[in-house]
Each structure stands twice: as structure tokens, then as C-alpha cells.
Design a protein around this nucleic acid. Structure first.
Length: 221
DNA sequence: AACTCGGGGCA
DNA sequence: TGCCCAGAGTT
């Protein structure tokens, strides 16, 4: 079935108008704090991460501050974020590597970042983009869902979604587009109950049109 | 590709 | 009660 071409420009412009101030909602003061906050953000809300890291970063804001911590002490700091055993282990190990191998600096390449335990493609992209201003599109659950709904990407694989977005979106807009898609996913294009009725992208969204069609046929029946 | 880690939030 | 949350590592 022939689909109309996805109006990428129009979608991006609309998102920019909707979220002119879109930004990273994790609180951090340094690349290191952003790295830790992002590792912690796996499968839990950024709001919750901020509540935990606010007091934690008062004392623990450099890799060397974590070196003497036991696994149990680390778990105590991040309790309530879920996945706490993995996160604790990964953070302690990552801090040790940063201290020993990188002079306590956070590296600036995908390869080096993704070699750190607990750091995958998404976290590396967040750090590169937000802390170092290197254009990147971090595909989290929101970006994944919204991009697929809008037709900006069409894949069940996150790496493939990232490739498709990088191909369709001009490089200088990657970092902003990443935030627009996340903000849209949180505010309107939510997973379970998307507010298509108030969405300015409705007319150019395949998902919204498919939903409208479903609703119409349901009403009829 | 599927599974596991995991407590908190929300309908 | 079920599903989701700014994922990563293992099998």
C-alpha cells in the first residue's frame, strides 16, 4: 500500500514550536554526574532519579569519591530506583575505570563510553549530546515509540530506529529532536493513553489516523 | 530475540 | 492488578 511521504520537516518544526525549551530533565552539574544519573535512570523516571541524586551528589560527585564504597553502601544510596544490584555494581566499577584509566574524566567517544559497565548506546548518546555538545540521538522508550508512531522510523530494533532518525533528521537538529521526541512522548504521545485529540501532529501522524479509523469503525459497530 | 533485573507510579 | 518507567548484559 502506497503511503504518503513522511513530512519530516513539518513534524520537526511543529515539535520545536511545541517544546521550544525542551532539555534534559536529569539534574547534573558535570559530565560525570550526568553519566551516573543516566546509568541510574534505566527503567525508572528521571524525576525519581533527581530525588535520589540530589543528596547523593553533595558528597559523591567525583569518581574517587566512590572508590571506597562497598557494594552494600552503594545500594543504600540508590535504593528505590530499581535494578539496584546491577546499577550499584556498574557504578562502582565504572568509577574505578574512570579513575584508573581516564584520570577521572568522562571519555567522549561511543567506543570508550560503551566499554564502561552499565553504559550502553543510549547512555553514551545522552552523555555525548548533553554534556559534550556532540550531535546524537539517544533512543529510549519514548523516542522509540513516538518515532515509530509518527513514521520517522519504522523498526522494532532501537539501533535501527537510531539509524533511521539520523538519516532523516539533519545532524544539527539531532540533539534537539531527541529532546522534542522525549518531551512529546511524556506529555502527549504517551504509551498507553496518547492524547491525539490535542496533538498538533495529529494530521500528519499515521498512528493518530489509524486510531481515529479504529474509533470510527467501533462506533459504527 | 528473549529474558532478567526491580521498586515505584499510575489507571 | 497490570503495565510502564529517559536500559544493559547475558543466553
Amino acid at each position: 500500500m502506497a503511503q504518503r511521504k513522511v513530512p519530516v520537516e513539518e513534524i520537526l518544526d511543529t515539535l520545536q514550536q511545541l517544546y521550544p525549551d525542551a532539555h534534559c530533565e536529569l539534574n547534573y552539574r558535570t559530565p560525570f554526574e550526568l553519566l551516573i544519573a543516566t546509568i541510574l535512570s534505566a527503567q525508572c523516571t528521571d524525576k525519581r532519579v533527581n530525588e535520589i541524586t540530589a543528596p547523593m551528589f553533595e558528597k559523591l560527585n567525583e569518581p574517587e569519591h566512590y572508590l571506597h564504597l562497598t557494594q552494600e553502601e552503594m545500594e543504600e544510596h540508590i535504593k528505590g530506583l530499581g535494578l539496584y544490584k546491577n546499577k550499584s555494581k556498574n557504578i562502582l566499577e565504572t568509577c574505578r575505570i574512570l579513575f584508573e584509566k581516564y584520570n577521572s574524566e568522562v571519555p567522549q567517544t561511543h567506543k570508550e563510553l560503551e566499554a564502561l559497565p552499565g553504559v550502553g548506546r543510549k547512555t553514551a548518546n545522552v552523555v555525548l549530546s548533553n554534556a559534550y555538545g556532540i550531535p546524537a540521538i539517544a533512543v529510549d522508550t519514548h523516542v522509540f515509540r513516538v518515532a515509530n508512531r509518527l513514521g520517522l522510523a519504522k523498526s522494532e530494533n532501537v539501533d535501527e530506529v537510531e539509524r533511521q532518525l539520523m538519516k532523516r533528521i539533519p545532524r544539527e537538529k539531532w540533539s534537539d529532536a531527541h529532546h522534542w521526541l522525549i518531551w512529546h512522548g511524556r506529555r502527549i504521545c504517551s504509551a498507553r493513553n496518547p492524547q491525539c485529540a490535542v496533538c498538533p501532529l495529529q494530521s500528519m501522524c499515521r498512528y493518530a489516523q489509524a486510531e481515529a479509523k479504529k474509533a470510527a469503525s467501533k462506533k459504527k459497530a
